[in-house]
């Protein structure tokens, strides 16, 4: 998933305007037991399926026209709860390329961008406008995501803006590998530890190295 430049796209936006959607809801713990669990299946599992594992018809991603959504429109504080990056993985594996919400929890926000998932901030009013128009006409669910221009546009040309910090936008558009970027500064890291070893020797002589 890393290293893929983000491209503008058009897709179906699923409205899920609840507040405080937490990472446990996005990907419940039972789906985290193995490294290769089908995370796409687990996305919103306890909302998506009933007790017998059948699709819950009330849940948006099970509704006709929304099964292949690539955009999520969510309420404020999306991704709160834990650091589980599997929340971002599950969204991406399902096919979601962008989530828009009035605000995001800190760790989820980092995790999203690190996996090429756009997390765009949308004013509450803009979110309400989009959700209302989708609810009244399903055709309005098809949106064009323009990351360079930071706009969402529907089929009738109605457009709202979202925001993304510049550096994140550019990193997404380039498909940066964060570790490679940091390793470009290896000399600085080395200089830091050289001086720091003198200042704080107890940090480096942990005893952990003696097996």
């Amino acid at each position: 998933m890393k290293g893929q430049p983000f491209e503008n796209f058009s897709g179906i936006a699923a409205p899920l305007p609840r507040k405080n959607i937490n990472t446990d809801a996005i990907i419940p713990a039972p789906y985290l037991r193995t490294t290769d669990t089908n995370l796409a299946t687990g996305l919103f599992a306890l909302w998506r399926y009933d007790d017998n594992g059948k699709a819950n018809p009330d849940f948006i991603l099970n509704q006709s026209g929304f099964e292949h959504s690539t955009i999520l429109l969510a309420g404020e504080n999306f991704g709160c709860g834990s650091s589980r990056e599997a929340a971002a993985w599950a969204l991406v594996r399902f096919g979601i390329k962008a989530v828009f919400a009035p605000s995001f929890a800190d760790i989820f926000y980092e995790n999203a961008f690190r996996n090429g998932l756009l997390a765009g901030i949308l004013a509450p009013q803009a979110l309400a406008t989009l959700v209302t128009s989708i609810n009244s006409d399903v055709a309005c669910a098809e949106l064009i995501v323009d990351l360079s221009g930071m706009t969402l546009t529907d089929r009738i040309g109605q457009s709202v803006s979202f925001s993304v910090p510049d550096f994140r936008r550019e990193a997404l558009l380039r498909g940066d590998d964060d570790i490679a970027t940091t390793l470009n500064h290896s000399d600085d890291i080395h200089a830091f530890t050289k001086a720091d070893r003198v200042q704080r020797p107890w940090i480096y002589e942990t005893g952990l190295e003696h097996q």
């Binding site: 890393k2 650091s83 589980r84 990056e85 599997a86 971002a88 760790i107 980092e110 995790n111 690190r114 996996n115 964060d178 570790i179 940091t182």
Partner: peptide, 8 residues
């Protein structure tokens, strides 16, 4: 931190 940051 998330898993990508663990790797970082």
């Amino acid at each position: 931190v998330g898993t990508s940051e663990v790797e970082h």
